[in-house]
Amino acid sequence: MQLLTVSPSPHIRSSMSTQKIMGLVILALLPAMISSVIVFGIRALLLIVFCTAVCVLSEFVCQKLMKKETTVQDGSAALTGVLLALNLPATLPLWEAAIGCIFAIAVVKQLFGGLGCNFANPAITGRVFLLLSFAGDMTTWVKPFYYKGLSFGEMLSSNGNNAIDALTSATPLASGDAGLLDLFIGNVGGCIGETSALALLVGGIFLIAMGIISASTPIAYLGSLGVLSLLHTLISGGEMSSVLYTLLSGGVMLGAFFMATDYVTTPITTKGKIIFGIGCGILTFVIREFASMPEGCSFSILLMNLLTPYIDRFTMTKPVGAKVQEKGEN
């Protein structure tokens, strides 16, 4: 007879764990990663692997320096790395990418207390940081399949290479000249992971089906952005297809399914998630239409991250059987 364990109930736990959740999200990003490698070549793979490694290493070093328990095995740093890489243009120099990764993990995540304590999405903040710091490199887009005819070394290299410079094109969001089908399957320029709406949709639906993310956020986000752009089209008298163009181009798909659904930095209740999604949709529309920047997805999610504590406060659940406050509304 061994010693009996005495512990409070419940005595069974579900099989879901933080590690499994992070793993499933990375798995859901696999179609986007594959399409990025197909469209932008070996350089995309290099960026993904490099960013993931730098993020994991940064987390490890931070925790060692702060004498905290090492938690890189939970997969959250790896996920940040993958997400950040998918938000970068194919030709970004590796040292710049590394700075983005270190900023995301060390400053945005670990300085605020690590997983669960950061108020802003590390990958998004890392991207915005890079965009402000290296505006040129971060907005240099290569055409799809630019790597055809290049040698292996040229494929791996970044800017400074004349052959690539000649191939740069504006992102379709800025130029507005891509076909809808090309946008849907990803045959356009842009950040490596955000071009194929199809691949992102497959991953997003997988996450919803697995119960990892709530469908309410992407529906509210894409829905509100769609409605606003429809209204805009009706008022300005443009073509109806521009609504689809808005939804499929830029980082909206990646943002709606993978960034605006981050547990830590978005509201906890379904009502809160809907408000968050609508807020992202409105901000994205406003930035795209009225601001000087072509893309507003990252900024809109980052701004809504800041509002999350307030949304949480106003979307508390009403417990069953709770007495209604005398002066409160029902």
């Binding site: 879901m16 933080t18 959740i21 938690t71 939970d74 690590g114 997983l115 669960g116 304590c117 547990y263 830590v264 906890i268 209740t269």
Partner: peptide, 8 residues
């Protein structure tokens, strides 16, 4: 480990 605010 740390609460990740998943809301489950």
């Amino acid at each position: 480990s740390a609460c990740i605010h998943c809301g489950r």
